[in-house]
């Protein structure tokens, strides 16, 4: 950076009034440096892996989306936005997008409302709370792929328990996973079943943190029916938890893949094909990686936008204590 010190410069320095750094200032600088080092050491590994495993792949996706690269190919060329144009013009993608929206709009309200209802019932009851909590939380912990196979057995058109039970009751049966009108709703029901426990546990924690005095005040003020208590105290106080549950469940619903892959493979036709499954099929079955990357980019954009909109909208309605 700088050349060797000339004699005159050196002597100038020597002639200048001697700056004795204040011990406190020196100490403060030293402490700040060591603090920075500690911070770097603590955050470093996480930052490194975040960059390598998340930011770089995302950047790579953006780049690949602009190319015609096929999985395993040794050459590629930039094609600009043509992948995106193709995606938007593709009826298959549009069907997949609509399916995803339908799936999410069944799973999110279903999970939130049922999760809240179960949490309220468990919290309101006296006995076997731990048992009920565990029963409802189990599906969330289980591997969904394995559970999907269990569901496949249950929903089997001839030997499945569901149809046998319906038949025994004299109700109409269906080929649940092969009927284009019910395949997607059935997958959504399985999605609700899986996420229910998670929502319930969060709501239970939220219910525990509501001060009892608020319910007492509601009783004295005359809001003593369950619906009034719910509207005056419970729901408003659960606002922050509800917002978190909605966002997380929505993200999980957008990411639905396992059940589709195992149970329907997007069929019949494209009746149950969701975005992540389209992405997978294009990239790894048809090996059109550039096209798949474009789908991934659009997927990311949609999910991010929706989440931001949710946060903005709900934040105005939610009261934080």
């Amino acid at each position: 950076m700088s050349g060797p010190l000339t004699l005159s410069e050196a002597s100038d320095k020597r002639l200048m009034p001697i700056e004795v750094p204040l011990p406190t200032a020196q100490l403060a600088r030293k402490r700040a440096l060591s603090e920075a080092l500690v911070a770097l050491a603590l955050a470093g590994p996480a930052v490194f892996f975040l960059v390598v495993l998340f930011f770089l792949p995302v950047a790579a996706i953006f780049v690949i989306a602009l190319t015609d690269w096929r999985f395993g190919a040794t050459s590629l060329s930039f094609v600009g936005l043509s992948n995106f144009r193709e995606v938007c013009a593709d009826a298959g993608f549009r069907a997949s997008l609509v399916n995803t929206v339908v799936y999410v709009s069944i799973v999110v309200p279903g999970t939130v409302i049922l999760g809240l209802a179960i949490a309220l019932v468990i919290e309101g009851g006296r006995s076997c709370r731990g048992l009920y909590r565990a029963i409802h939380f189990l599906p969330f912990m289980a591997t969904l792929t394995a559970m999907a196979i269990a569901w496949e057995a249950l929903l089997h058109p001839t030997i499945g328990l569901v149809n046998q039970a319906l038949a025994a009751l004299g109700l109409p049966t269906a080929n649940w996973l092969r009927d284009e009108n019910v395949a997607l709703p059935i997958l959504a029901v399985i999605g609700i079943w899986q996420n229910l426990g998670y929502a319930m546990v969060l709501f239970l924690a939220g219910l525990k943190s509501i001060p009892q005095e608020l319910y007492n005040a509601a009783d004295v003020d005359g809001a003593d029916l369950w619906i009034d208590r719910l509207r005056t105290v419970t729901l408003p106080m659960l606002g922050p938890v509800t917002m978190f549950v909605v966002i997380v469940v929505a993200l999980r619903a957008f990411e639905a893949f396992d059940t589709v892959k195992v149970l329907t493979q997007g069929g019949p036709g494209r009746a149950s094909e969701v975005l992540l499954y389209t992405l997978y099929r294009e990239s790894f079955e048809y090996l059109r990686t550039g096209y798949g990357a474009a789908v991934a980019v659009l997927f990311l954009a949609i999910v991010t936008t929706l989440t931001l909109v949710q946060v903005r909208f709900m934040d105005t309605k939610v009261h934080y204590q």
């Binding site: 001060p211 005095e213 608020l214 007492n216 005040a217 009783d219 004295v220 003020d221 005359g222 003593d224 005056t232 105290v233 408003p236 106080m237 009261h319 204590q321």
Partner: peptide, 16 residues
């Protein structure tokens, strides 16, 4: 609510 009473709580118990 039928007792014709009102109560002020220690934590005030206002609906936040």
């Amino acid at each position: 609510k039928r007792r014709d009473i009102a109560m002020v709580f220690q934590s005030y118990a206002l609906y936040p």
